[in-house]
Design a protein around this nucleic acid. Structure first.
Lengths: 250, 250
DNA sequence: TTACTTTTGATCAAAAATAATCAATATTGA
DNA sequence: TCAATATTGATTATTTTTGATCAAAAGTAA
């Protein structure tokens, strides 16, 4: 049985029982306690259960923490990009965090830092709200329930009232010809606002999106200071020739 | 049994009994008094109960735990007030919901309605986000982690950008002499903004707060259209003489 | 007030659980 | 196929939790 299967079974089992011990789970899953501990540690880090001494308890409110359940498996690639991106954040920074699964993965690596986070993403909010060293400003506006994020004119105006040292953003498409593209104006207007009001803009983007264009063209390549990606130099060559600073993660 | 489980049981037990001794809890949880004392110390530090000499008491206004405030602390009185308040909400309404436990209880009774809710409270957000018939606007600004709500200048400015049919608010104190009073300026400035931008203002307030004054005086009685309370007419007489419309719940 | 009782917080040793390490096995990609 | 990588389970060292003990502090009654 692999990790994904065990994860599913553990969460199902915890849904019935309020809480279970490592040994109970070891018996249910026919795996060793060591494996169960590793699994529980990983799942707890995703915020889907509460680790206790000796076992685990069901999360009371997975409503807003459910980015990982929505996007299924967080790919190792996204994690590497997120980790690299997080390494650009220093204590004392004020940063914008866009909504999007790769940016969300940064949370893990931000928890040890002393920073202020300004975001429109509810999963990010849920993930960081219990970290004492991180202060949070929430972007207000209309709530997009599907994306678990805030958007709209009011949100853009609100972002314009802030200035951050760095912005970490995502896109749907990126190419030397068309710059940054998205598949919705709602999203792109928020991202544009982050770009406009940040000192440095870091774009997190996995290889699959490079060279691909979506239909809303919302920013030039020159708006970005650094692209953080897992793509190889062959794919990013055109971008680098356009003067973009590229950082390969992994 | 581990700490997380005991914590849950202690809070549940305290919800029924008003207060319990260390020895009573030790018996209920089958743990030693030393363990109970440690637990009570830790939980008290989180602000979820009041430590007394020899035991613990229920917190009247515990900081909203988690996003979704589960069972925990809803008194029947607050529920009656909340139900009555919700009966003032009609389909199509745009309403402001303040943060505070009584206003939060309204959520239960709002779920069948088709409305737009504008709020600064994260527990309310979490409670209503999955209701398809309710659209939500989130007030943006600085996040107060302890209260799980947004506040600050930006939040007030943001509220000023909206107009709602009705506002449902709470207070810490209410009297004919001093009007509405609060514990903190942060809270009161938000509530003031709701009052200023709503067509009708409904004040949800249990009997214990009537005739009591807190130290930040932030609005006149005349700002309120209807007081919804469980207090008897003896207590509300002075308020009614000042021209306040009083609705008794229950 | 003073004497007496209760409660507490600190300390400590025992027990339980965990994290780290390592070898064996399974999986993946060339 | 083989080499490289990842996963698993066992072993060991470390950490956490717990209950007992006891002096100090807080509460109570005279």
């Amino acid at each position: 049985m692999n990790f994904q299967e065990r994860k599913k079974k553990i969460l199902t089992a915890l849904d019935d029982a309020e809480s279970l011990t490592v040994f109970e789970l070891a018996e249910i899953l026919e795996a060793s306690p060591a494996t169960i501990r590793r699994d529980l540690g990983d799942i707890a880090e995703e915020g889907l259960l509460v680790r206790t001494h000796g076992g685990a308890m069901k999360m009371e409110n997975p409503a807003l923490t459910g980015f990982s359940e929505k996007s299924g498996v967080n790919s190792p690639v996204k994690e590497q990009i997120a980790e690299k991106a997080a390494s650009y954040v220093q204590d004392g920074d004020i940063i914008f965090l866009d909504c999007g699964s790769t940016v969300f993965q940064m949370c893990r690596y931000l928890k040890k830092k002393s920073i202020r986070v300004i975001t429109n993403s509810l999963p990010i909010l849920a993930e960081l709200i219990d970290v004492p060293s991180i202060q949070i400003n929430l972007i207000g506006g209309e709530l997009n329930k599907a994306r678990k994020a805030v958007h709209g004119d009011k949100a853009v105006q609100h972002i314009n009232g802030y200035h951050a040292h760095k912005a970490f953003i995502g896109v749907d498409g990126l190419s030397a010809e068309n710059g940054l593209t998205a598949h919705s104006e709602h999203e792109s207007s928020i991202t544009t606002a982050f770009i406009r009001n940040a000192g440095q803009v870091m774009l997190l983007c996995d290889a699959s999106k490079i060279g691909r264009d979506s239909y809303v063209k919302f920013a030039e390549l020159s708006a970005i200071h650094t692209l953080i990606t897992d793509a190889d130099t062959a794919k990013t060559a055109a971008l680098q020739q356009s003067g973009l600073n590229v950082e390969i993660a992994g």
